[in-house]
Design a protein around this nucleic acid. Structure first.
Lengths: 173, 173
DNA sequence: ATAGAAATAGCAATGCATTGCTATAAATTC
DNA sequence: GAATTTATAGCAATGCATTGCTATTTCTAT
């Protein structure tokens, strides 16, 4: 049973093979990002996951009032239990503080402290160097293209969630 | 202060922002891959990392004689200690066995058992479905493009390793 | 006011991933 | 033959990430 067209369409095996390599590269890239990224900010006592949280809280629109746990979970797409541990470490180090939400008595907002802001500003230099080195082989256009494809991949992977219909897309400013 | 050219060249801030979003999407995609991928093979009692090891050992060229720890570390790009724990779990479940290397008395080769091969064949169906669903929004050409970009990203991230000069690239057949 | 939903906190377990250290056995090199 | 390197194993610690469960406080809807 041959394909009808001579243009050599991808077989199921071909498709599986490409997808397999794709996700394997995702797995390897993620591990390397965490390993070498953590090394890049090791001098500050931080890790990649902590820098993700700090980066979320440092955004201009939320820097003043912080974010509550629900917002951070939606933004970072991690579990509540995982996030709580990271927030506890950041709080213990004095980089963030938990304040009561003025509007909602149940909620507590995590906000950068003065110390946290200072550390973050220093870390930004190391993070910038890390980005530059890791993406040295990519042009600006390619970086944008890769970002957009990873964004779609994230959406494709997120759509597989059974219950999580609240996959709201917070802005990223 | 306006840009000199009307073509709006990328500023340093633009470059940082794109890189920042790119790695954030990598972080999110990886988390989702592990979470939903593990759900996809949960019925078999497996996880994504275990399926990566099984997939490595199931390749035609190594299926008969297996791989030793050093080869697996180079292939999967994980630490020795992490791999040992995963291999122990697979061995305890009877999916792999550790045999003595005929050529090198120090080395032990991890090889799929008959049971492991049977489970892997079943898992392949679930994995194929997972791939299809996660990449439903991508054409064949886009999947190939994304794979190639992730491959380069992996290389860029791997080049940041201080000591690891043995970043040999094993084939993937 | 009462019931239900939502936001947080905590306990417990499993698995992944890293680093650092030591020890043993076998191969290689000199 | 002796010294070094290589491959594996084990112990210990830290951090990330998930799931499942319960409890408390507060807000909202009836």
């Amino acid at each position: 049973m041959r394909p009808k067209q001579a243009a050599a369409p991808a077989t199921n095996a071909d498709r599986f093979d490409v997808a397999n390599r794709l996700f394997f590269r995702l797995y390897q890239s993620s591990n390397l990002m965490h390993k070498n990224g953590t090394r890049a900010v090791w001098g500050f006592g931080s890790t990649t996951q902590q820098w993700a949280v700090l980066g979320a809280l440092a955004r201009p629109r939320v820097r003043k009032d912080g974010m509550n746990v629900k917002e951070l979970i939606a933004f970072l797409m991690v579990s509540r239990q995982n996030l709580a541990a990271v927030l506890d470490r950041l709080e213990a180090r004095g980089w963030i503080e938990k304040i009561k939400d003025a509007a909602d008595g149940r909620a507590r907002r995590s906000r950068l402290t003065v110390k946290g802001i200072a550390i973050w500003d220093d870390m930004l230099v190391a993070i910038g160097d890390f980005y530059e080195a890791a993406l040295a082989d990519f042009s600006n256009e390619e970086q944008l293209l890769l970002y957009r494809m990873l964004d779609r991949l994230k959406d494709g992977l997120g759509a597989l969630n059974p219950g999580d219909d609240d996959a709201a897309q917070p802005d990223e400013g």
